[in-house]
């Protein structure tokens, strides 16, 4: 597959993935742009692979998880956790939109690697093996990252229902 064809077919999906793991569309845009510039320079090699998309996704993920974006990620997390504090008390539990936004805010404050695993599972429908390949870790690590993320989200979900129960 040629580079131009790859970009035409996959750019939108790659942007969606990057936005979901970074929770910041501008950071996502920067990362995707930089990664594609780099990928283009060695496309001869990447294009010949079985799964070029998986490889480019790995580049995007590594870039986000690298030290370079640690500060940006922290700032986004702080901003989102402020938001998250306010959402539950104001939300009507029957309101699906509010419920989704509350979940979004909770996902945004997860550790970066856990969120990346979560997005690959629930947005990209990846197998444990594929996630392990992208994150560069063992499948057992993927499973523990996912179960820890789900545990956190579930705990929050319970706390939220309880709070709403008291106030309603």
């Amino acid at each position: 597959m040629g580079f131009d064809q790859f970009v035409a077919e996959r750019l939108d999906r790659l942007l969606g993935y990057a936005t979901a793991i970074t929770c910041d569309k501008h950071l996502a845009q920067d990362i995707v742009q930089n990664v594609l510039m780099r990928a283009q320079n060695k496309w001869e090699r990447i294009g010949a692979m079985d799964a070029p998309y998986l490889y480019v996704k790995r580049m995007v993920t590594n870039d986000y998880l690298s030290w370079r974006h640690r500060k940006a990620a922290r700032e986004i997390a702080v901003e989102r956790s402020e938001l998250a504090k306010h959402v539950p008390s104001m939300a009507d539990p029957a309101d699906a939109h509010a419920e989704r936004e509350a979940m979004r805010a909770r996902i945004a404050v997860l550790p970066r690697k856990q969120r990346a695993a979560l997005v690959m599972r629930f947005y990209e429908d990846c197998s444990d093996a594929e996630i392990a390949q992208v994150l560069g870790c063992a499948e057992s690590t993927v499973r523990s990252q996912l179960s820890r993320a789900l545990q956190t989200l579930r705990a929050h979900e319970l706390a939220r229902s309880a709070t709403l129960g008291v106030h309603s």
Binding site: L15, T19, A20, A28, Q29, Y123
Partner: peptide, 20 residues
Amino acid sequence: LIRSAIAAEAEERVDSRTVL
């Protein structure tokens, strides 16, 4: 719920034409 929350987050992405 997780699925729809992540999809909503991804929906925020910039227009791919800008990136192109």
